[in-house]
Design a protein around this nucleic acid. Structure first.
Lengths: 197, 197
DNA sequence: TTTTGATTATACCGATTGGTATAGTAAATG
DNA sequence: CATTTACTATACCAATCGGTATAATCAAAA
């Protein structure tokens, strides 16, 4: 692994663990075993490093979810199941980035971290909205509420991933990282009931 | 408003807007029109100020939701409706604190902000769990899944409040801050369906 | 062999960080 | 009136912040 990659790797771990603002550039370069000019050569600024981390992480996420999202499945339920499964699999396999993404989603609007993640979130939201648009004929008249459906769907997945992640406070230890197909089908069932009236 | 109160007020606004780590003590005292020793006299440290803000905010929240949560309503649906309404009303009326609370909920585990909010969240979770425990006979056998029900219920409310708050990215402007009783009843309906099978 | 461009370390920059020692003021208490 | 207690400003602290000027190293190209 070259220096650029190890900086990205180490910085993601530190940012995810302590938060972007609480981690100094010096701490990153020490952990990566390099010095400041190397970091600034590759990323230009601390903010540039954050952007590079997000670019890479959202690439991984979109790689996983875009296939099921763009498939023209005739069964809406089956398509939502496939999207949910891809999303939750990513949340487990790429847990560090996923947790960091969640923390940025809910971070204050005027923070640098939020500014960096905003375009990626908009892109993700738009992809989900488009999926619901394409499924209009199968879901019936959504009365232009595709955006709410998309946000609700993502919110449900986030809540589910969060609850079953290492970040949970009081949940039984045994339940961690155990997301079965049956769980996901039950989740979709509940969601479908809500939106089709 | 005395100095102590205006510090709490100004600091909450700054922390909620830019994040705890991104706001310096100097910035707080400048905005409050006082000097550092005054702040350190009342709160001892920046972290102590954060704790005081959270103590005060969670007091306001628990004041609003504890009454409906502790009422021995015979109709579970009605009780959940009352709790949801109190919660969402707080999210609208006390939007700045609510947004800050959300950002701390999802902030990195090792951050100071998370350490400060963790006991309050545990307390809130426990209250909701207790409510479900007491409703056991009405909800049927929950198979020890009260914790998941509680987390799911809170997650749903948070997602709902978040979606209808000023923090939304793509939602229609008209929908902001319009949370009707009908909306809440629909929300509870959807939730009930999911947990009673 | 010389040159060029990419990469990296040493050493430094001004500004800001959270926090405090000292002294003063003002109001309440004896 | 004297004393104590609560409160607040001036001025300062070492440490860390994000960032950089300079120069050395090294591989590839000319």
């Amino acid at each position: 692994m070259d220096n650029r990659e190890s900086i990205l790797d180490v910085a993601l771990k530190l940012f995810a663990d302590k938060g972007y603002d609480a981690v100094g550039v010096q701490e990153v370069v020490d952990a990566a075993g390099i010095t400041k000019p190397t970091l600034y050569h590759y990323f230009g600024s601390k903010y540039g490093l954050l952007e590079a981390i997000l670019d890479k992480g959202f690439d991984r996420l979109m790689d996983k979810v875009s296939t099921p999202m763009n498939s023209s499945d005739s069964d809406v339920r089956e398509q939502l199941f496939n999207v949910a499964k891809a999303f939750l699999t990513f949340a487990v396999d790429d847990g560090i980035f996923f947790g960091f993404m969640l923390s940025l989603m809910y971070s204050p609007k005027s923070s640098d971290s939020y500014k960096a993640v905003k375009p990626h979130l908009l892109n993700l939201y738009q992809s989900v909205i488009d999926m619901f648009m394409r499924a209009s004929d199968m879901l019936g008249n959504m009365n232009g509420r595709q955006e709410q459906f998309a946000m609700g769907f993502l919110g449900l997945l986030n809540q589910y991933a969060y609850t079953y992640s290492e970040r949970t406070l009081v949940i039984d230890e045994e339940l961690k990282n155990h997301v079965t197909d049956g769980d996901i089908r039950a989740l979709i069932q509940q969601y479908m009931y809500g939106i089709v009236n």
